[in-house]
């Protein structure tokens, strides 16, 4: 891995394979811990830790502001179970260390799923079945939280989060 911290100039910075490697691993780790936190019983305290007061969220077309906005949203959210089916991540060109664009596609079950439907629900009724979700994050380095461990590039947080149910 090449040292490139010297090139702090905000001008055009070329992405290196090492950038891609670090970004890819970060996205893999992030999607795992984010959705396992989302689906946990401790989500109300734990999920906002990924956000900051300046974070922008749009949940199915409704805007929320910051970690507190997320908390407000999560307070009224039914129990969830996410399954990530695909995700992708790019280091966004232009800043150093680069911000990340992460998009996730998967299924999410709310409440008790089909088992929680009234007994006379017809088999063709899609309600209660898992939905498809599409969620896009912009992850950015937190300038106020300098690296605390050897090897740590920076601490990243969710600066933008756009979610839609899409199926």
């Amino acid at each position: 891995m090449t040292a490139s911290m010297a090139a702090v100039a905000p001008a055009v910075v070329k992405l290196t394979p090492s950038d891609v490697e670090i970004a890819t691993r970060a996205a893999d780790h992030f999607t795992r811990i984010y959705y396992s936190t989302y689906d946990s019983n401790t989500r109300l305290n734990d999920l906002p830790q990924f956000y900051r007061p300046s974070s922008s969220l749009v949940w199915n077309g409704k805007p929320f502001q910051g970690a507190s906005g997320l908390r407000e949203l999560m307070e009224k959210m039914p129990v969830t179970k996410h399954e990530v089916q695909s995700f992708d991540c790019h280091p966004i060109p232009g800043t150093s260390p680069p911000s990340l664009l992460v998009s996730v596609s998967g299924s999410v079950t709310h409440g008790r799923g089909p088992a929680g439907n009234p007994t006379n629900t017809t088999s063709r009724n899609p309600e209660g079945h898992p939905r498809v979700f599409s969620q896009t994050f912009m992850l950015v380095p937190d300038a106020a939280a300098p690296a605390s461990k050897p090897g740590e590039v920076a601490k990243y947080y969710v600066s933008a989060d756009a979610l839609r149910f899409v199926g």
């Binding site: 691993r25 019983n41 305290n45 199915n60 999560m74 009224k76 039914p78 969830t80 601490k155 990243y156």
Partner: peptide
């Protein structure tokens, strides 16, 4: 070399299972 997140630890304080039976808002 890696990116870190403020991730919750292995044993966070126990909390209650979410109980909402409706969504926080309508589809916009």
């Amino acid at each position: 070399a890696q990116i870190a997140f403020d991730r919750p630890g292995p044993s966070s304080t126990p909390a209650e299972r979410p109980s909402a039976t409706t969504f926080p808002c309508e589809m916009g």
